[in-house]
Design a protein around this nucleic acid. Structure first.
Length: 494
RNA sequence: UCCCAUUUAGUCUAGGUGGUUCAGGAUACCCCGCUUUCACCGGGGAGACACGGGUUCGAGUCCCGUAGUGGGAACCA
């Protein structure tokens, strides 16, 4: 049987970075086995529905290089792919469970359930729930007569359908990552399967859909491990073969706990895939980083593109413990991909667009190409080209604080001396080589080290204490502009 | 509080079937080198098997406890 996996996000907001990793693992698993990767939208909670979310999910996956084989925008025979559009199926199956005594109608109001919880808490039950014991004293089709139930249904009373969890039983199943896990049904509640608004809960919907969509492997976050026994109970009740289960370790925040939106923000970690998309991150770097957050190929290799990851990925190499999101490691990957996998040619259009967006006229393609070449190896994310390359297009408006500390008392004198040499050079001969000779002459004449002259010149030209190779940079900027900036600096800094 | 999972350096991790290539790699950090600066690059350094029992001639590796961490305990997914 061919492998079919699904990524089943809830459209309640932008695609979370943890969701992206879950999608990635599913995708890698699918591709490794030449199977199918399905996107299913779990929009059963109408109160939390966000209309742009689905589009964001699809675009984000696409940006990351995760190709969806089937989904709401790519239908096939297993559709529809939005749970809201599969409503009737859930009703039918819920009905079936009732008929087979695996589920029942419950008419209790939220107030009544709350009351029950309060009552049990007072009598010493720390975590009261609607279960095999308490259901006997509630309003449901197990305690009411058949006539009463029929009457209530007919007069349109609100109801839910609950799973009838067996009283004393042990649910055991094999998780591909964790091995055998077992749960006592005494710890489970009679999970609501069909809500009073007619929508299924996640639990019913995911079981019905995974089965009818012929999903072979359920690969999802560890937060679902606790409800997995309910799902196994459902498969059993339906008489269906459950798919293979694999619960992934969670991505943790550096300060501990699941990497939530709020936590991530306070720790400076972008949490929505969207932020990476529009933040000029390299998708391959993010993917490589995410793949290694909870998985590794078993050798000492660190860099893998998507196809290599597809080839190497297996569930038995996924680790069990939560993995802390390390932003610096991500940046290392990003830098690596910028340096090794992006050529100057491929960077040019993007850089030009960025320069233009920040008001710099980067129209000269040859000039821009030189700028990008000079900057390429010292940039770790492509948007850094702008602040680093700005001085190629305009004189610094002010001087960086750190840079100013390197402007010494003798700097002005040395820069002036250098200016004297540069003036001698003809405009058309103002080349990196010529400039270097001029500097050497200056250094000789003044009996100082290279740096004593270079640093002040750099500051004068760029306003900063670091940056690309200075001689070619000066050639690009041109004689007139260089001299003007140096004179300005001498005048302003003394 | 209950249930489940999990636990190798700051972080991500390698360590099928227990025995002087078992404590390795990467990142981060520190130092040195290269260099006009910053980075890149090259070299080096410090840093870990949660704790306690057991099984065994021998355990990071198996078993049991304890602790820490995380998840769950909804008509949310």
């Amino acid at each position: 049987m061919s492998v079919r996996v699904r990524f089943a996000p809830s459209p309640t907001g932008f695609l979370h970075i943890g969701g992206l990793r879950t999608a990635l693992y599913n995708y890698l698993f699918a591709r490794h086995h030449k199977g199918t990767f399905v996107l299913r939208i779990e929009d059963t909670d109408q109160s939390r529905y966000v209309s742009d979310a689905e589009q964001d999910i699809i675009e984000s996956l696409e940006w990351a290089g995760i190709q969806i084989d089937e989904g709401p925008h790519k239908p096939s025979s297993f559709g529809p792919y939005r749970q809201s559009e599969r409503k009737e199926r859930y009703h039918k199956f819920a009905q079936q469970l009732i008929e087979q005594d695996h589920a029942y109608y419950a008419f209790d109001t939220t107030e009544e359930i709350e009351e029950m919880r309060e009552r049990l808490k007072k009598s010493g039950n720390p975590s009261p729930k609607y279960d095999s014991i308490t259901r006997q004293s509630m309003k449901n089709s197990l305690t009411l007569s058949q006539d009463q139930v029929q009457e209530k249904l007919q007069q349109g009373d609100e109801y839910v359908i609950r799973l009838k969890v067996p009283r004393r039983d042990t649910v055991k199943f094999k998780d591909e990552i964790r091995g055998i896990v077992s749960f006592d049904t005494a710890g489970l509640d009679d999970q609501v399967l069909l809500k009073s608004d007619g929508m299924p809960t996640y639990h019913l919907a995911n079981v019905v859909d995974d089965h009818t969509m012929e999903i072979t492997h359920v690969i999802r976050g560890e937060e679902w491990l606790s409800s997995a026994p309910k799902h196994m109970l459902l498969y059993k009740a339906f008489g269906w073969e459950p798919p293979t289960m694999a619960h992934l370790p969670l991505i943790m925040s550096p300060s501990g706990g699941k990497l939530s939106k709020r936590k991530a923000e306070t720790e400076g970690i972008p949490v929505n895939t969207k932020e990476y998309r529009f933040g000029y991150y390299e998708p391959e770097a993010l993917i490589n980083f995410l793949a290694f957050l909870g998985w590794n190929p078993g050798d000492d290799s660190e860099v893998h593109n998507m196809s290599s990851l597809c080839e190497k990925f297996t569930l038995d190499r996924v680790s069990k413990g939560g993995a802390v999101f390390n932003y610096k490691k991500l940046m290392w990957y990003n830098e690596y991909y910028v340096h090794h996998h992006r050529t100057i040619e491929d960077l040019l259009p993007q850089i030009q667009q960025m320069f233009s967006a920040s008001g710099l006229k980067a129209n000269d393609a040859t000039f821009l190409k030189m700028v990008v070449t000079l900057l390429h190896e010292r940039v770790s994310k492509v948007d850094e080209f702008v602040p680093m390359g700005r001085f190629f297009y305009e004189a610094p408006k002010d001087y960086n604080e750190k840079a100013l500390k390197k402007w010494s008392d003798q700097s002005a004198v040395l820069v002036k001396s250098f200016i004297g040499r540069l003036i001698e050079i003809a405009e058309q001969e103002f080349t990196a080589v010529a400039i270097k000779h001029a500097l050497e002459a200056t250094v000789d004449a003044e009996s100082v080290g290279f740096g004593k002259v270079m640093m002040p010149v750099r500051i004068a030209l760029s306003g900063q204490s670091f940056g690309p190779d200075l001689f070619p940079a000066m050639e690009l900027i041109g004689k007139t502009e260089c001299l003007s900036r140096m004179q300005t600096a001498v005048g302003r800094l003394g």
